[in-house]
Design a protein around this nucleic acid. Structure first.
Lengths: 213, 213
DNA sequence: TTTAGTAATTTAACGTTGTTAAAATTTTTG
DNA sequence: CAAAAATTTTAACAACGTTAAATTACTAAA
């Protein structure tokens, strides 16, 4: 009974946290980390700015929490896509494509992911454990790429390099597409996605076959 | 004579502008656009914050000017590297590599370039002409890649796609390297640079030969 | 059901940010 | 040397993230 009462209270508090996080998710995605104001988040959640500090340590901590769930849903989508593929080569293709497609379909999550590319999120102001959890979530999402590469005959290290390289390539491409800056060069999103999939993923397989001799 | 006096005045004013820009370059590179404070720039240049508004319209305008010269020196380096190469294939390789190496050797310029990846620099607050000049500088820097691809038998559009794709790939890789976040995956900078050059640039040439039939 | 205690929220304030207007200063011109 | 123009400073504004103290809402015990 005592436990029930306690867990009820905690459940209510948890519900309020989630409510605030929902508001934060929107504002962060729309305005970015620096652009989003704590007051805007508070208003959208029906709170006063200072009230957020009862539930969260800082603005960065809120951002980290939002980003964490974003990376986890990315990982879920990649894992699902890979599980539906049969051959290792198709797994590799599916992983690379689903990663790309996730952000193409969920541009808000791309906005959130921006911050992973910056030095801004320092473990000092964030808590090193939270930083490690973020990295773990990202690595989990990317892992199927390395796994598929290993199945195709690459070494563990080669697989990791491919994974990172592939991630960087797709991420850079997505960032360019998303900011719209790339239209100046006369390239469209579908064209670039095709370029990415065809001239990159296909060649990854070829490169691997060359590498393992 | 009248012209002489005028140009002397303008030259002095220009010198002060450059002095401020030098300070801004440092602070922006160290702290990023959002992190850099106008007061820090002013102090380093020996001014009061408000004085900067006589020489520049806004903080973003200062940033754009700093970024502009960064992109121009990138373009100069890429152009120089390409001019020393003989065959089209070597030109392509030299262009892709020099672009990569420029940012590896000048991490401060990478810091500056970050902002090109974000939606933050809106033409509204910046002046569309300045935005166009920034894009022109970037395109000029990348153009040798497309040019070399065309010499290798690609269409104009294929060349542009390769150029953008190559840029995105290198940029994403550099961002990951620079934030240090990539060490978690057990990959080092030299390894990734080798991966980029060998498995990407080489294959670009192969892909082109396949494409032009 | 009232009371004591704790959890949750607000109010008010601090220092810092980019930016602006007006005053003060330096520099050039007639 | 005086008038005019160019440059810099001082003072202030609203908005930001954050904190401490005061206040309200809620839960537990008597």
């Amino acid at each position: 009974m005592t436990e029930n009462r306690q867990s009820r209270r905690e459940a209510v508090s948890e519900r309020k946290r989630e409510l605030i996080l929902d508001a934060a998710r929107q504002v962060f995605a729309e305005e970015g980390l620096d652009g989003a104001s704590l007051r805007a988040i508070a208003v959208r959640a029906g709170y006063t700015p200072a009230a957020l500090y009862f539930h969260f340590d800082s603005k960065e901590a809120m951002y980290a929490e939002v980003l964490q769930t974003s990376l986890e849903s990315l990982g879920a989508e990649v894992g699902s896509a890979v599980s539906h593929a049969s051959s290792p080569h198709q797994k590799l293709k599916a992983a690379a494509m689903s990663f790309f497609q996730f952000y193409a379909a969920n541009p808000r999550d791309l906005d959130l992911g921006f911050y992973l590319f910056r030095g801004g999120m320092k473990p000092a102001g964030l808590g090193q454990d939270r930083d490690l959890r973020l990295n773990a979530a990202l690595e989990a999402a990317l892992h199927p790429i390395a796994e598929a590469a290993v199945e195709l005959g690459a070494s563990r290290q080669q697989g990791n390099l491919l994974m990172v390289d592939c991630f960087a390539h797709a991420a850079g491409l997505l960032l360019l597409l998303h900011t719209g800056r790339i239209r100046m060069f006369g390239a469209s999103a579908p064209e670039l996605m095709e370029t990415y999939v065809d001239s990159r993923v296909e060649q990854l397989g070829q490169g691997l076959r060359h590498a393992d001799n």
